[in-house]
Nucleic acid binder design. Structure first.
Lengths: 156, 156
DNA sequence: TAATTGAGTTTCAAAATGCAACTCTTTTCG
DNA sequence: CGAAAAGAGTTGCATTTTGAAACTCAATTA
């Protein structure tokens, strides 16, 4: 049984991190988005210990971020694939990748290039917007924590 | 000295996770965005062990996600505040919060309410868009990993 | 000036991680 | 078809990280 530390938190960021907030899970999801599906391939691409990979994949399956599918011809051979819930981490991962490209550049490496398949043009930086599509920064928002009445003036 | 596991990875997601990818760091940054600045306040709001908090704050300062400021009148009293780099995690955190609200709902709890300070209207779901503001899903993009020539057809 | 608060260290136990070797199937290839 | 190789894990053990509580020591507050 996998221990869940923040499972019961009233903070949805905490609950999200409980499911994918360790060192490996998001990287596994990322590789899955790039097309990796097999245990050995995850293992080799990440250089993760096999038992840990096993644990993380089980955890992701348990939390319905991925599903495990038997693709053996006459026996068992598995593929791990993203569910709708897992695919919905796309935004988070792109935002994180862009942050990494901006703030932790790797000497001599270009930031990864991600493009619209149809138009061939690069993806725009992910932004928080209001309903008219106007970009909002941390200073432009108010957070209303529903149980307390605290209106928290988000700032740095 | 803090060990960095993915520091040298050519993957910017890995490098990003190296800086903020543990169980606590993003939650610390989140609280900082809501206005928390003092060691004890982080400690109480998170219920984190004091030595771990200490380690995480140092790590965040070392990576320039936060800065430590002496605010003592005649001696040392500290505040931890976000840097520009830390503030730029806003998008990632909002995306993660929205994912958590969608996929790990807490029984009897409303998703957190975040609004535009000026208009009072709720923040829109964060999306990956092309340059015209057209939303893109994982299936709509191509990833070009620059060192190999592999064009990876991102999928689930 | 004494008591309290802030901001940590230190110590020690418990849990998580990493590594290598070992299993047991399922494919593949001659 | 049978042997060898690949896939998908387990198991055991050493190393690291965490967590909890007690202990410092300076700065505020009463």
């Amino acid at each position: 049984m996998v221990k869940k530390r923040f499972e019961d938190s009233t903070c949805s960021v905490a609950r999200a991190l409980d499911e994918v907030g360790d060192w490996w899970s998001l990287r596994i999801v990322l590789l899955a988005m790039y097309g990796t599906r097999r245990y050995v391939d995850f293992q080799q691409q990440l250089g993760i210990a096999r038992n840990i990979l096993c644990d993380r994949l089980n955890r992701l399956v348990e939390n319905e971020v991925m599903r495990k599918e038997n693709v053996g011809e006459h026996g068992c051979r598995f593929e791990y694939r993203l569910t709708e819930k897992g695919r919905d981490l796309f935004t988070v991962l792109v935002a994180l990748r862009q942050w990494g490209d901006r703030w932790t550049p790797y000497p001599g490496q270009e930031p990864m290039d991600m493009r619209d398949k149809r138009t061939g043009r690069p993806v725009a930086p992910v932004k928080v917007c209001d309903q008219d599509g106007q970009a909002l920064s941390i200073r432009d928002v108010l957070v209303n924590q529903d149980d307390t009445d605290a209106v928290c003036d988000a700032e740095d």
